[in-house]
Design a binder for these strands. Sequence first.
DNA 1: CGGCTCGTTGAGCTGCATCAAGGAAAGTGG
DNA 2: CCACTTTCCTTGATGCAGCTCAACGAGCCG
Lengths: 217, 217
Amino acid sequence: MVASYKSSDREFEAGQDLFSLGKPCDSIYNLTEGWVILYNLLEDGRRQILHFALPGAVLGFHPGDSAMMTYGAQALTDVTVSSIPHKALLPIVKQQPEFGLRLAWLIARDCSLAFDRLTSIGRHSASKRVAHLLLKLFIRYRAQWPGNQIEEMHLPLTQEDIGDATGLTSVHVNRVLGDLRKDGIVKFHYRRLQIINPDKLIDVARIDPQLVLSWIR
Amino acid sequence: MVASYKSSDREFEAGQDLFSLGKPCDSIYNLTEGWVILYNLLEDGRRQILHFALPGAVLGFHPGDSAMMTYGAQALTDVTVSSIPHKALLPIVKQQPEFGLRLAWLIARDCSLAFDRLTSIGRHSASKRVAHLLLKLFIRYRAQWPGNQIEEMHLPLTQEDIGDATGLTSVHVNRVLGDLRKDGIVKFHYRRLQIINPDKLIDVARIDPQLVLSWIR
DNA sequence: CGGCTCGTTGAGCTGCATCAAGGAAAGTGG
DNA sequence: CCACTTTCCTTGATGCAGCTCAACGAGCCG
């Protein structure tokens, strides 16, 4: 990605934190392999998952002038990243100005995904939230293998993770998944996601089918 | 901001859209005066407010490769912006590489604020959500006049706006605001916000007081 | 004055949380 | 290979925070 700069590769095991809430982080990471979640913890131990990062994502860019991260990042699967120290960013953009724009673009995309989730959590019912999440993850995952027409995937999440992402309890997620299964829309069992009826899923998720098409191709 | 490039100024009246959901937007805007909300509309007419933009914010940077905006932007007050066509961005960063980084930084900040709101909406009770919103807006507003120790401000929102931002109904927002008033924490009446007891507000909003201090100075 | 928009308050209902208990996979150590 | 543990899933009963529906009040504007 950045020819002129030697970015150093690094690996994390599933469950490890790439960086933690309230701690400094001196590099940005470009995720090359695996799944990472960004999350927030409350004092009472509950959690809100903020974002699912897939290969190609940029992580750890400082959101403020303080070097402290306001959220944590945890590897969902084994993960490989290439890291660039923050100090190297300015030299890099001076040599490769497009890099800065590309960075801004990547972050804007994450921001837009966050906005989507805000709408989902703020205004939709439990089943719509879950359907929306599954559909989006499925589409983003599939986008990595263009042309591949799978409707089954390995989704490295527990029902608790889904709850933490949608603002629900794992108990209620379980019931919603049960309904989706009964209605022949989606099966999710032990980290295996099958889309039985994509059209119905799009309908339940309350997403404009036109929009979905535009994502797919 | 960008000396080499003639950015053109533009004004919008309160209530006008700077850009709309599902339509193209060929420029980015740097907000110089006024309040702007970013929002999403559902088919049934309900709304989710995604972000409150204050002077200094950058708006309209494309979140995807399509030139369509996935959310709308509406002026809450009369607004002035300086606009830069998207086509001019590449030439600008070539001449001023730091510009790209600064852009990324601004967008990352908005993203971080969106993450905050996600946590608030996903995991907190109604009173915490409202308190959190008011506190954040107050702090961000006051940050524009450093050193100023006001605890009263003009907040150009209706209770419906607050509901749309927190994922609540305006009816329930009204009750929550009533409670906050009764408890001597905050008064919000006809677009005038008074913070009566900042410490209690921070407590109700479930925000780490340390963190608040770090925002203030 | 009459027609807005916005705020206020009450009554009743419901979607999701909470609490609780048990089942089924998968991992671990002998 | 089998006990044992841990993690995750499943299901039921009960309660409540916030929604819905409804009506009215209060400022504001033409």
